[in-house]
Design a protein around this nucleic acid. Structure first.
Length: 109
DNA sequence: ACCGTGACTGACG
DNA sequence: ACGTCAGCCACGG
């Protein structure tokens, strides 16, 4: 059903492609969708991602690897713990070695 | 159809 | 290098 939330589904589809142990950014997703300037809208879409268990929103962070959206996981430490389980190291809400853990959908295609 | 909001990003001082 | 400002798109009311 072509709903208005079609854009959201596009975002979820990209996030689902993010391999475990890797992370991506809102801008990378936005650019992959063709709307590079809609990075904010991507984050907005993640707000509704909670309704989708297949959407690892915890693997999506801002361009500097900062867990800006951790507050939206219900628990402030939820996002950080999820990433740690994936093998990441979080310090002060920032992913250590983010450049190495960064996964760009545009490169994977 | 208009306005306000937001898990962002890039540019400027 | 750090802090601040403005622009951008999509959704809800």
């Amino acid at each position: 059903m072509t709903k208005s939330t079609d854009f959201f589904e596009r975002v979820y589809d990209v996030v689902r492609q993010v391999p475990a142990g890797k992370v991506t950014t809102y801008g990378a997703i936005a650019r992959y969708l063709g709307t590079a300037k809609s990075a904010r809208t991507v984050g907005y879409a993640m707000n509704a991602a909670h309704a989708y268990a297949d959407v690892p929103a915890h693997r999506v962070v801002n361009r500097i690897g900062l867990l800006t959206g951790k507050h939206h996981f219900g628990g402030i430490n939820t996002m950080q713990q999820l990433l740690e389980v994936e093998g990441h190291t979080i310090v002060d809400d920032q992913i250590q070695g983010f450049s190495t853990a960064f996964w760009d959908p545009n490169e994977c295609m």
